[in-house]
Design a protein around this nucleic acid. Sequence first.
DNA 1: TCGGCATATCGATGGACGTCGATACCTTGC
DNA 2: GCAAGGTATCGACGTCCATCGATATGCCGA
Lengths: 115, 115
Amino acid sequence: MTKKTIQGCCSVLVAPVEERDAEGLCLAFKALSDPARLRVLSLIASQPTGEVCACDLVAPIGKSQPTVSHHLKVLFEAGLVTKEKRGSWIWYRAVPERLAELRTALDPSPAFAAV
Amino acid sequence: MTKKTIQGCCSVLVAPVEERDAEGLCLAFKALSDPARLRVLSLIASQPTGEVCACDLVAPIGKSQPTVSHHLKVLFEAGLVTKEKRGSWIWYRAVPERLAELRTALDPSPAFAAV
DNA sequence: TCGGCATATCGATGGACGTCGATACCTTGC
DNA sequence: GCAAGGTATCGACGTCCATCGATATGCCGA
């Protein structure tokens, strides 16, 4: 009655790197798993100049300043944005390389097997 | 002292579609925001046959059967996998189109502005 | 029809997370 | 030095979530 005798059970291939890498990827995906944060990143990445001052994010997002600051911190710690202090203001930029990493991880072609 | 007089303040472009689409994308990213779930998806997608029986996922993931079942449900509801019942077993497959959607959303080229 | 296996659901629990007001820190202009 | 504004941190609160054991449902073979 076992499936093996009927279907020829699949030998689930467990990639050994999996467990460690999954943690790192999850940190990034977790950063994208909140609507407000996704919009923050979108606002930053869609700028013609490539950068946004933190103070200009509060109004469009519609959350309090501490909340936006918190989300920016999460994005920063996930490696999705960089910040640069200029005067009183802090400018945020998206990190294309990190985004490319995530896209690669979501590629169903052979590369995904290595996730 | 305002930034506008010094830097020429950025006019943060708010995409109107943003809020609605962010919710849909977040559902998928949230599904990927757990290490166990990421590994489940990886195991499914990396199969040569393209499909995996649910029963073969419990052992590699190292979580209880109800937990794995829960994770599969989340992935299914996020549109990342499909399931097909054959006899007593349920076979899961990845959904390449949905993965492609996410890759597109993470593209820093113009497309990302529409997220 | 019955026993066994695969899968899903339920209920409970401990921990993580989003949110905000209050507040502290730092920089700038006066 | 002082006042004002931008930003981060803190503490608290309510909610969501991952996890598991127990249990229900469904399918198959005997």
